[in-house]
Structures are given as C-alpha cells and as structure tokens.
Simulated scan of single mutants.
Amino acid sequence: MQRRSFLLLASAAASALALPAAARPQISTDTAPGADFASYKTFAWVNAQPPRGMNPIAFDRIRTTVENGLAAKGYQKADPGDLSLILSVGAREKTQFESWGRFGLQTDVYQYTQGKLVLDAFDTSTRQAVWHGQASETINPEKPDYTKIDEGVAKLIAKFPPGGGAAAAPAPGAAPQQ
C-alpha cells in the first residue's frame, strides 16, 4: 500500500511539473513610464541584417511575422517611423538539477537550450526606449520549430503596445468610428 501511495504522489508531482511547460513560450514586457502609444502610428527597423550566424530566412520570417502583427494593430511600416524597432535573437545552454527520493539522494540532470527573441521599441524622435518585450522557450538549435517561433511572436505582439496603442485602420468602404 505504501508503494502505491508513493507512485500516486510521484505521478502527481510529475504532472505538476509538466503544467508550466503548457504555458510556453514565456513572455515578459516592460514599458517606459509616460510613453504615449496613441501618438505612434508607424514603425521602421533599425537592424536590417540578421545577427552573425543566424539563418537569414528565419530572421526575415520573424520580422515579417512582427510586421504583420503590428499591421493588424493599425501600425504601418514607414521610413522613418514614429517607432524604431530592434529585433534580437539568441540561445543559451542551461542545466537544471532535480533531487528526489529519500533525503534527496537521487538526482536528475536536464540539459536544454533556451531560445530568446527580444523586441525593443524606441521613440524615433527622442531616441528613448519606450517598450521592451521578450519571448523565451526551450528549443532545438539544430531544427527550429517555426510553429513555436510564430506562437512566441504572436504572444509577444499581443502585449504590444500596452493599453491598446494605435487604432486599427477601418476597412475600405467602412464608415469611420465615432
């Protein structure tokens, strides 16, 4: 009976550990105090080239996904834009240790790669940072999962800008909203 209780407890613990993985990718954002996103209508990229060593097709794909998300929120690409955007990507090897068993004598070691996508927005006229967002997720650097990348970008753009930002442009032929 004691073994069965232990197995149930171990199963419940494993399930609890798996729950945070369902919330992936992890998104965090920060906004400059007093930033007036209602005054921003356009954007432009600062970095046109991918970081050294990055697949240029993947970089363009990410930028296009960001552009489409911003367009859906009513922003237009222009040169120069009201906002200057910088896209950064990177990966870091991480190690996680978990002790379990009697007195924690059993240890499991997990090694994985954490990918991070960062989008920074600057007020073009003042050159001040107004918004920072990042998405992080466990990745396989040898085989990018574009579904995860697109999901991370979509969740990141959903948080941009805080408070709604630019109003979406009305559809052609639609009456203006009052």
Rank of each mutant, 00 (worst) to 15 (best):
F6W: 09
L7C: 06
L7V: 11
L9C: 12
S11L: 15
A12P: 01
L17S: 06
A21Y: 01
A23E: 12
D30H: 11
D30N: 14
T31E: 12
T31Y: 05
A32F: 07
P33Q: 12
A38C: 04
A38V: 10
S39C: 04
S39E: 10
Y40I: 01
F43R: 06
V46S: 09
P50W: 11
G53D: 10
N55P: 02
I57D: 12
I57G: 07
A58V: 12
A58L: 10
F59N: 13
D60G: 15
R61K: 04
R63E: 10
R63L: 08
T64L: 05
T65N: 14
T65C: 05
A71P: 01
K73M: 09
K73A: 10
G74A: 02
G74W: 05
Y75W: 09
K77I: 03
A78H: 00
A78D: 02
G81K: 04
D82W: 05
L85M: 03
V89W: 04
G90L: 02
T95S: 11
T107L: 08
D108P: 00
D108Y: 06
V109H: 03
Y110N: 13
Y112Q: 08
T113A: 11
G115L: 05
L117Q: 00
L119A: 02
D123Y: 01
T124C: 00
S125K: 15
T126Y: 07
A129R: 06
V130K: 01
H132E: 09
H132S: 13
G133L: 02
G133Q: 01
G133A: 02
S136T: 14
E137M: 12
I139P: 02
I139E: 09
N140R: 13
P141L: 08
E142G: 10
E142T: 08
P144R: 07
P144N: 10
Y146I: 04
K148C: 03
D150L: 10
E151M: 06
E151H: 04
E151R: 08
K155Y: 05
K155R: 06
K159P: 04
P162S: 11
G164W: 12
G165E: 07
G165K: 05
P170N: 09
G173W: 11
A175I: 12
P176D: 07
